[in-house]
Design a protein around this nucleic acid. Structure first.
Length: 252
DNA sequence: AAAGAACACAACCGCAGAAGC
DNA sequence: CGCTTCTGCGGTTGTGTTCTT
């Protein structure tokens, strides 16, 4: 069916629908940079966009937001998705909180594409497996390069932030990764909460999860800022049962 | 090379809960 | 306290691209 046949891109009841144009994206980006996220229903009035609030929010959250991670789901991310979906079911937004830069929509689409079908057809052919493996290797390579690049850029900023937080005395640093002297976990000092033992943390730092240890902190944490107290409590209980160490990290 | 299948992604809808009045 | 509005979530659908036969 064509866009025209679907009435996409046309103005319906005053609102445009269908794919976003570059101009619309720019208007929305300008709006958010000036007014911040939220109050989506006022976007149309202020920016001149002929899109309703829901459409604007969706476009921003799923596509325009600057900290979104582009590119395919990595094998590590896939593991987490599988694990969390097994425990949480279709709670995509909760799963997405564990994958910084990924949206619920993206994960939902990924799951639907890759695993929904597998419920019926559990075995992949050898060909498919080989293809998937090649693809994974390429992705891993790309991601590694990307992470190295980002780390270089963020190094100065992050070090300053960590140092200032240390100076405030709110955090404790724990070097845990043997043979990885640059790998450091940071978690809040709480008098009434036991910290994760270094032994446990070491166990978490496997080859597969090394990078995961880094993103878990920033991503999960950033999202907690926007959650209600009740949601936070539920989230903490859920997440701490899945990822040892999460509970300590989330105590701010 | 062409057709069909599979995949990846974007976007809409309806509903529910939170927030504001 | 009830109503309205806003926001976020999950489900679904449609389109374009890539892969397979």
């Amino acid at each position: 069916m064509t866009s025209a046949a679907m009435n996409w891109g046309v103005v319906k009841e005053g609102w445009r629908k269908g794919p976003w144009t570059a101009e619309e994206d720019k208007l929305l980006i300008d709006y958010v940079s000036m007014h911040g996220e939220g109050r989506w229903n006022s976007v149309a009035g202020i920016s001149g966009l002929k899109r309703n609030g829901k459409s604007c929010r969706l476009r921003w959250v799923n596509y325009l937001k600057p900290d979104l991670k582009k590119g395919q789901i990595t094998p590590d991310e896939e593991k987490i998705i599988i694990d969390l979906h097994a425990r949480l079911g279709n709670r995509w937004s909760t799963i997405a909180r564990s994958l910084p830069g990924r949206t619920d929509n993206e994960i939902k689409n990924y799951w639907r594409t890759h695993f929904k079908k597998n419920e019926k057809q559990s075995n992949k052919s050898a060909k498919e497996k080989a293809r998937a493996l090649r693809h994974q290797q390429q992705q891993q390579q790309q991601q590694l390069q990307q992470v190295h690049h980002q780390l270089h850029q963020q190094e100065d900023v992050d070090m300053k932030r960590i140092v200032s937080q240390l100076e405030e005395g709110d955090y404790k640093l724990s070097s845990v990764a043997q043979g990885q002297p640059e790998m450091v976990f940071m978690y809040p000092m709480m008098a009434d909460e036991p910290c994760v033992s270094s032994t446990l943390l070491e166990a978490m730092v496997t080859e597969d999860s090394l990078w995961g240890g880094l993103w878990n902190w920033d991503g999960i944490h950033a999202n907690l800022d926007h959650m209600s107290a009740t949601s936070k409590a539920v989230e903490k209980i859920e997440m701490s049962s899945f990822y040892p160490g999460y509970f300590n990290q989330s105590l701010i």
